[in-house]
Computed example of a mutant assay.
Amino acid sequence: MDVQGTVADGFEPVRDAFAGNFARRGERGAAVVVYRAGRKVVDLWGGAKNADGPSDGACGDAAAEPWTPDTAQVVRSATKGVAAAVPLLLHQRGLVDLDAPVGTYWPEFKAAGKERLLVRHLLSHRAGLPVLDTPLTPAEAIDGVSGPRALAAQAPAWEPGTAHGYHAQTYSWLLGELVRRVTGRSIGRWVAEEIAGPLGLDLWIGLPDAERARVGRIADIAPPAEPATPGLRMRPKRSVSDAYSDPGSLTRRAFGAIDPQADENDPAYRAAELPASAGIATADALARFYASLIGDVDGARRLFAPATLTLARTEESAGPDKVLVVGTRFGLGYMLHGPACPLLAPGSFGHPGRGGSLAFADPESGTAFGYVTNGMQKNVTADPRAQALVRAVGKALAG
């Protein structure tokens, strides 16, 4: 694999790990970017733009088009980390009270025993609404109306605030509708106008038609057999895959809130504003976004005030996850470092995307990381490709 791009002195282990993903871990096409103290120190890409093309990026037809620095991809749940910044920034501006009932901003939401369900419960996956009583069709999922209406009428699966379970799909309609009620703007528009535009990010929640040609096709791939790394990956008695295979489980129902599963390569799906799962970004955009949460970048002032940064990464939920089965840790909108989501260090916060993508920041080291791939590995909570890169960043920082 001819890896393209550059690394700063000392970050050569990241290049080695990135090349190793193609050689040993089934990588099709990918990019990784790392910022340190607001400066880009890793910018690598390689392989094919489309997952159904050859992994060597050879030219010749559309499927074999090589990855370039401008290639963007669907990043699935890594979108959640971008979306979570919106209510936190609204709180920072005095427009949202995290301890107010959601019904304060969205009156219809008070129905079915949700009168005391708080905004912070949505962000920390404690709302008890990870599943829909009746799944939405793909068309309903993207119409902007059906999802919020269903959740407003539905009773929680557990008493809000008493437990946590990953809101894999319903996070889209819960967060999106809250932002719309508070600001009068869709969450995709808010991100475009208040975050992506000012920071110059190639990142969208709702892909514009003009950007469609930059986005490669994704495909599911089987993860290669690889021994678990001590201290990084743990297999519980019942794995996520086991739970997902049970049609009646919260796991299967949470990930099946859209039924049949939407085609993530469909232009209509990519144009939809689904902040739980359908964001599209370059690796640089994800890394630069997280860099902007913790510090100034290229003259642009940091997004999060110190108090907001503390909120993002202070533990709100921890322990057995009712949906993901494994033990997970969440702050307000962000996954925190732990066995289910190994990041750089205990103070790191961010979000993986199911199947591969990962983005996070580590304030103590001033590091921000973004990894995007088009080869999606199913039901892996700590993707071995992303983890190899994270370990390499740690090695580089350690000198």
Rank of each mutant, 00 (worst) to 15 (best):
A210F: 04
G299A: 12
L250I: 04
A83Y: 06
R214E: 10
A84H: 08
E194Q: 15
W190K: 05
P230E: 11
D298Q: 14
L389R: 02
L344M: 09
I294L: 08
R212G: 01
P236V: 01
K110C: 13
L122N: 02
P346T: 12
A30C: 11
G184C: 11
V326E: 15
A100K: 08
T68H: 04
E316M: 15
L274N: 02
P223K: 06
T71Q: 09
G161S: 11
A271F: 00
V240S: 02
A111R: 12
M234G: 05
A150L: 09
P306C: 09
A85F: 09
D133R: 13
W45S: 03
G206C: 06
P198A: 13
T310L: 14
R313V: 02
G248T: 07
P101A: 14
A141Y: 10
W158H: 10
A307L: 12
G231K: 10
G184H: 13
P66C: 12
N374P: 09
D298W: 06
K49P: 02
G200H: 09
A63C: 10
P54V: 11
V215A: 10
L286R: 00
M1I: 10
S146E: 06
F289E: 02
V41F: 06
R253K: 15
A157H: 11
E159P: 05
Q73E: 12
V326L: 13
A8P: 02
D70F: 03
G399I: 07
Y269C: 13
A312K: 05
V326W: 02
Y371A: 07
Y290R: 03
D246Y: 05
L175Y: 04
R313Y: 06
R181S: 05
T373V: 15
D61C: 13
V240E: 14
R116A: 15
E315M: 13
P346G: 14
Y105I: 03
S365Q: 14
G188W: 00
R212C: 04
A100S: 12
A19N: 02
P384R: 10
F289I: 04
Y105E: 00
V240G: 01
A243G: 08
G200M: 11
D61Y: 06
V191A: 08
A150G: 05
T183P: 01
Y105C: 01
P247L: 13
L250E: 02
R233A: 14
A271G: 15
A345H: 12
I280Q: 03
L311F: 04
R212P: 00
V119M: 04
N379Y: 13
V74W: 01
P107E: 08
I258K: 01
A271M: 05
K49L: 15
